[in-house]
Design a binder for these strands. Sequence first.
DNA 1: CGTGGAGTTGACTGGTATCAATCCTTGTGG
DNA 2: CCACAAGGATTGATACCAGTCAACTCCACG
Lengths: 251, 251
Amino acid sequence: MTLEAPAAAEDTLSRHRLRRIDTGKSGAPDGDGAAIPEAPREAWQGAFPLQPERRTTRARHTIYRAGEDLDGIPLVYSGWAARVRRLSDGRRQILSFILPGDLMSASAIFCDRLSFFVEAITDVRYSVSQRTQVDEVLARDPQLVRTLVSACLAEKAEVEELATDLGRRRAEERIARLFLQLKTRMEARGQISGLSFDMPLRQQHIADATGMTVIHVGRVLGTLRNDGIVHIAGGTLTITDLAALHRLSDI
Amino acid sequence: MTLEAPAAAEDTLSRHRLRRIDTGKSGAPDGDGAAIPEAPREAWQGAFPLQPERRTTRARHTIYRAGEDLDGIPLVYSGWAARVRRLSDGRRQILSFILPGDLMSASAIFCDRLSFFVEAITDVRYSVSQRTQVDEVLARDPQLVRTLVSACLAEKAEVEELATDLGRRRAEERIARLFLQLKTRMEARGQISGLSFDMPLRQQHIADATGMTVIHVGRVLGTLRNDGIVHIAGGTLTITDLAALHRLSDI
DNA sequence: CGTGGAGTTGACTGGTATCAATCCTTGTGG
DNA sequence: CCACAAGGATTGATACCAGTCAACTCCACG
């Protein structure tokens, strides 16, 4: 598990992407003040009553490299990250976004080596619970094991939905669905006001998540804005026509 | 869990797809003779030493419908099937192919309701082990639980790779990778001779697995044939230039 | 023979990608 | 405080991959 490693050197095709050393601001939904919403609201909230190690990774840096040994189970408590697969020629696919309160991957509990990278989008603070300690807790609580297996299955189902989106839906549809998904997740965290929420993703992230090019993402966002459906400004996403967004999303 | 249910009625957009009632032949890799290779060669081989119920679903029919209650854990012992997500307007995405010896989905062990359909490609014979019995076995064998969780994680990783293919690779690349994957899986089953193996998929299946249209699949297959890389004839896939296929696949 | 599924081919369209230039915003450093 | 540099967003022109529509063949089956 690597901390604070610059991503530039390894990024074959990085076109300015991830290159700059972050300065600590970058529109993150969390200030750097004291009031960090540290509590994960998920089912495994009480699962790790341990003394985890605390770490930080700055925006645009890689938190975990595919294939490395995980030295513990990481849980994000502030900032956004992404699980991403990289191809040898630099193409990238984001598998999911990791929001505060999320395990970096539910798989990490049962497996100490993952097949994808985890990259910080904003500055990310996370805790790493020691595997041996977690295993002890799990051994005493079979019900918790079930819960965590379910979390894995949920993650799997999410990726299956992503695959369907990428294989069978069109650009506008995919973006609309991404936004609705983010809205739902932010809602669950109580981090939405009206139909707006903090959303630190750059167009490049949206492109890598929806299998598009940045430029086309920009165009689609443009039409969504002109049609009065969604607009992004200053790191905030605002839904101006929820019904239309649902219509586009086929939800 | 449904048996022998025709798919036509439910298939909103089916353009001849799945419509015909199969006659029992359809180029399945299994004859209907006695010599069925029944032994799953996977890790969970000894996992279900029970008296499972045996069932059959004919080609082109639906074995399981998303959201239904699973009344047991299904293991395919002959024929090919597919896990597939359907959209409301008839578009389909195949998440993976199920070959003889495969669990219909590893998720079925920990979850009695799946989010995708399972459809028979050829005639499919499978066993259904009762959940209560399997749970008993699992309770006595924690190591087996780990193994089966790993199977789930492997299935998850496979879908993540599919998502990457669909999002970031081109048509030819995707088809090449599908073929190589099938080759590997058939090899593991000892069902390959030279560089040929039985492959009952129609172009429509390949299209639904790779996120393409049938027609474009036909074109790509045509060029692969003309370039002397792969050709399909009489339900048999033959790789005529393995190196080229690897090159295309970026493996 | 007739029917229907499956595959092939051609013409055309269209959705996205690619290339390139400009502008805006923000952080950096003098 | 201001100028500069870099990242990010927007726009235009053009190319190309893949989708759509349609016709036709081939084959298995009844």
